[in-house]
Write a protein that binds this DNA or RNA. Structure first.
Lengths: 253, 253
DNA sequence: CGTGCACGTTGCAGGTTGTGCAACGCTCAT
DNA sequence: ATGAGCGTTGCACAACCTGCAACGTGCACG
C-alpha cells in the first residue's frame, strides 16, 4: 500500500539471509543505490539494521528487543478467553486454562457452563501437577533435564487408584503426551471426573499454556469425552495461531 | 531520513508495548487515521503486525521469524575473527574461540602469533572440558539442570595436580565463573600453560561463545597474564556488541 | 425499534517528499 | 601512479504520500 515502506520492509527478510552490502540490497530491491541507502539509513536509525565492520548491513539488535518485549507483553489469558468461552458455549463442559511457572502449574482461567468464574490474573490455584491433563502438557514440553528434575522433586499423592504413582510412571506418561500432542486425566484426581487437554504454542513452537475440558462421569463417559478431543485441539490450535500472530483462521474450534 | 518509513517503523515499538487500535496509533504518531491505516496495512502485508479478533493491532509472527532466522545465519567466527586477530597482534599470545554444542565444547578458531591457523567451520577439536577457561565460561551459562547433568556425566582426568578433581569442585568453579564474568585455567591442562578467558554474549544476554588467551609460564607468569584480563574482556565485549547488532563502539580492545 | 456515536474505510486534490541521475571522495589492487 | 569499485551527496522532477471529508458499519443508548 505504501511503496516506500514496502521497499524498506522488503530489506529485512533479505538481510535475514545474511549480511549484504549496499549494491546487493539496491539490486535485489530493483532501485537506485542512493534510494537503498536512504532506506537502510532509516532502518538503521531505528536500530533494525546494524552496520558491521566491513560496512555490510545486517539485522540489528532492536529487532530482537522488539520481539522479546512483544512476547513479554502478550497475555495468553486475554487472547484465549473468547475461544474458551466459545468452546464452552458449544459443548457445555468446564474449560480450563493453565500455565507453568517456577516448578508449578497454575490455573489462570476457567469457564463453567452458566457460571463464568473470572480468576485473578497470574495468581491462580496450583494444579494437581502429577495427574492433571494441563500439567502433563506443560511439563512434557520442558527441556529434558528440567523435566527430569521437576519429576524427581514432586510428591505423588494417591488421590485415586488411577493417580500417577511415581516419577518413573510420570515421565513415561509425559513422553506419551509429548508424542501425541494431547493429554487426558481419566479419574486420576477425582474418581468421577475426566479431562482432555491440548497445548497452546507460541511463535517458536514452545508450549506457553494448556487448556482442558472437564466433565463428571455421570454426565458423559470417558469415551464420549474423548470424542470432543478434535474440538479441543482445534480450539487450542486457533489460540496458538492468534497468540503467535500467524495469519488468522476464522475457525474457532 | 525517510519520513514515511520513519513513521511506519515508529509503530513497531509502540505495538511492542501492547495491542492498540487504529485511533491510538494515529494519535501517538501524530498523523491522520487514514495515514496510520495505510502504514499499518503495509506492515501487515509484510507480516510484521498482526490483527487480532478485536481488530486491534499487535506485532506479528514474521518479526519472530526474522529474528530467529537472523540468529541462525550469524556466524560468530566470522564476526569475531578480526577482533581476535587484532588482540593477538597487540599482545602476541595465542587466542582461542570456542562454542558449546551438545555436551561438548569445541574450538572454532585460533590465532597464533605469526601462525594464523584456520580451522574448519563448526567441526573443531573438542576442548579439555573440565579445565579449559573457555569451557568453564560456556558451561557456567547453561541452565542449572543441564549444567548439573553435564557435570555429572563428565570424566575428570587428572591432567595435572591442578586439574578439576570432580563434579562438585567443577560446579563450584562454574558458580564462581558465572559470578565474576571471566575464567582462568592456571596449569590445569598442561602444567606450564595458563589461560584467561571471557564470554561473548548474544542479543539476549546468553553466552554464545567464549574466547581465551593462552601463554606458557616461561614467557609470562600467571600474574602477568592476568594483567591482560581487561584487554581480553574488552575484546569479548566488543565482539558481543558486534554480534548482537548493538550500536558499534570503535574500541576493539 | 429507532437513533446517534465511534470506529474503520475509501477517493481525491494538493504539495511535500522520495526518486534517479550524475558527480565526488575514498580505499584498495594493479 | 592509476583506475576500478564502493559509499556518499546535492539537485530537479514528479511520484507518492498526506489530510480532508464523506461513507458504511456495529454497537449502546434512549
Amino acid at each position: 500500500m505504501s511503496q516506500t515502506v514496502d521497499r524498506a520492509l522488503s530489506i529485512l527478510p533479505l538481510l535475514a539471509r545474511g549480511p549484504a552490502d549496499l549494491g546487493q540490497v539496491a539490486d535485489e530491491l530493483g532501485v537506485h543505490k542512493s534510494t537503498a541507502l536512504r532506506l537502510l539509513r532509516t532502518l538503521h536509525e531505528h536500530g533494525l539494521v546494524h552496520r558491521q565492520q566491513d560496512q555490510r548491513y545486517r539485522l540489528g539488535a532492536r529487532l530482537f528487543a522488539l520481539a522479546q518485549e512483544a512476547v513479554e507483553n502478550l497475555d495468553v489469558r486475554e487472547i484465549a478467553h473468547p475461544y474458551l468461552a466459545a468452546l464452552n458455549e458449544r459443548i457445555g463442559h468446564t474449560v480450563h486454562l493453565a500455565v507453568y511457572e517456577e516448578g508449578e502449574v497454575l490455573y489462570i482461567d476457567k469457564v463453567e457452563s452458566r457460571y463464568p468464574v473470572r480468576m485473578y490474573s497470574r495468581i491462580g490455584k496450583p494444579v494437581a501437577i502429577t495427574v492433571a491433563a494441563v500439567a502433563k502438557l506443560l511439563l512434557a514440553d520442558l527441556p529434558e533435564p528440567e523435566r527430569r528434575a521437576v519429576a524427581a522433586k514432586l510428591d505423588y499423592p494417591p488421590y485415586t487408584p488411577r493417580s500417577t504413582p511415581n516419577a518413573a510412571a510420570f515421565l513415561k506418561e509425559l513422553a506419551t503426551v509429548r508424542e501425541q500432542g494431547w493429554a487426558t486425566d481419566l479419574g486420576g484426581h477425582e474418581e468421577s471426573i475426566n479431562c482432555v487437554g491440548a497445548p497452546i504454542r507460541g511463535a517458536d513452537g514452545r508450549v506457553v499454556a494448556a487448556m482442558s475440558v472437564s466433565a463428571p462421569n455421570v454426565v458423559v463417559t470417558a469415551e464420549e469425552l474423548l470424542t470432543l478431543l478434535p474440538q479441543v485441539r482445534r480450539t487450542a490450535d486457533a489460540i496458538s495461531r492468534e497468540y503467535s500472530g500467524t495469519a488468522p483462521t476464522k475457525d474457532n474450534g
